[in-house]
């Protein structure tokens, strides 16, 4: 039970507990920073697995992501400071069952299969190998990843910007009129604001 194992168990415990706490805290901003904590723990586990670049890159990326998530939390959600306890849960029992079921099956699978153990030699400079790999024979994969990221950026800007080609976004989708300039054709969607009056 040398030092690495102890460190691994500590990080694993942090990751799982903060992951669970994420969904039962009241305040949204606290939830996002708890998620950040679990990501940092996972990142450090990766460093223990002799993949330092991946681990620290995860920490780096997740810190910024959770920061943005905290911003969105406060923008959209109701009580970001958590002053007022909140039970925002629906189909509660079903989701608990689903979560436990998935966890049980996976652990069952893990215990059953025998894994070939061919551990990585610690001497390997994983950063250099990753570098050669990125620009070496899997260059194509990374080009596609780059382009998809670009496409995402463009898509997210279009989706969230207000002034679209056909008028501002908050006029809602209105079917085109039959004769130009007339009443929009088709069934009028009954006007209801965000308050859906739960007619299940």
């Amino acid at each position: 039970m040398n030092v690495i194992d102890i460190a691994f168990w500590i990080f694993a415990a942090i990751a799982v507990i903060s992951g669970w706490r994420v969904f039962c805290t009241d305040s949204m901003v606290r939830a996002s920073f708890l998620l950040l904590l679990s990501f940092i723990a996972v990142g450090l586990i990766m460093v223990l697995l002799n993949a330092p670049y991946l681990g620290i890159a995860t920490v780096f990326m997740m810190a910024v992501e959770m920061m943005v998530m905290a911003l969105f939390m406060v923008m959209f959600m109701m009580n970001p400071a958590g002053l007022n306890p909140m039970m925002m849960v629906h189909q509660h029992r079903f989701s608990i069952a689903a979560g436990v079921f998935v966890f049980a099956t996976l652990t069952g699978l893990i215990c059953v299969t025998r894994f070939t153990s061919n551990p990585v030699d610690p001497g390997l400079d994983s950063v250099a190998s990753l570098g050669k790999e990125l620009l070496g024979n899997s260059m194509l994969i990374f080009e596609t990843a780059g382009v998809t990221l670009l496409a995402t950026m463009v898509a997210s800007v279009i989706l969230s910007s207000r002034s679209g080609r056909f008028g501002t976004a908050d006029t809602g989708a209105v079917p085109p009129p039959l004769e130009p300039g007339g009443e929009p054709a088709g069934r009028q969607p009954e006007q209801h604001s965000g308050h859906a009056h739960h007619h299940h």
Partner: peptide, 16 residues
């Protein structure tokens, strides 16, 4: 697996 389980629970149960 534990993380995936918790994530699934969170996705299915949360409203916002």
């Amino acid at each position: 697996a534990a993380l995936i389980g918790i994530g699934l629970y969170g996705t299915l149960s949360q409203q916002s």
